[in-house]
Amino acid sequence: MLAKRIIPCLDIKDGRTVKGINFIDLRDAGDPVELAEFYSREGADELVFLDISATEQKRKTLAELVYHVAEKVSIPFTVGGGIGSVEDVDVLLHNGADKVSINSSAVKNPQLINDLVAKFGSQCIVVAIDAKQIGRQWKVHLVGGKVPTDLDLFEWAKEVERRGAGEILFTSMDHDGTKNGFANETLARLSTELNIPIIASGGAGTMQHFTDTFVEGKADAALAASVFHFKEIAIADLKNELKQKGIPVRI
């Protein structure tokens, strides 16, 4: 049976992991490669690296990072953050990334999704969507949720699927950082209306939240950052808990 995936997300700035990661058993918790190896040993199913740096060196630094992660880690990983062209994606995949995720660049130029799919295949193109509930509608936001657009979440998600994306990474800006659980109602609707895998993001605080997002939210995978980085939840414990609740996981 296909397992539900647990995905730690690592924020990267200038080739280093950011956020106050607190690992006493790592020599250098700021080293993305070392942290990636740690999560892989812990049983993470996949990793996401989100590059938030804004320097001119960014592309080169990120490509080098991808190369070193691929060298050491034998689970799949996705790279995102500021990717805007076919050339950007070519370099990252060539250096060993399994998938790339695009966000604002897809909203600004939806044809980019088709171009990437035609060149590299659906399987490695993830479209990340950040959205916030405004009134009764879910509106897509850009720049890490700061800039609202007129796009309706469900319409945009369907367009993304139609254009060939292999997966959607949905972050609810209303839930992100709250630790009150994922946006399960919205996730379930996405999962029902679309026929590609949905990764849930935003709101993880407890192990129960993961169970809920797989059962009620019908998510195919769940992504989280701080609960893993601050060791509030150990991935091995989380997987055992999910297994006991009857959710298929890889142990």
Partner: peptide
């Protein structure tokens, strides 16, 4: 078929 999500992505047995 469309009874399942396509592509299959992830860990299976």
């Amino acid at each position: 078929s469309n009874r399942v999500k396509v592509p299959q992505i992830g860990w299976n047995q």
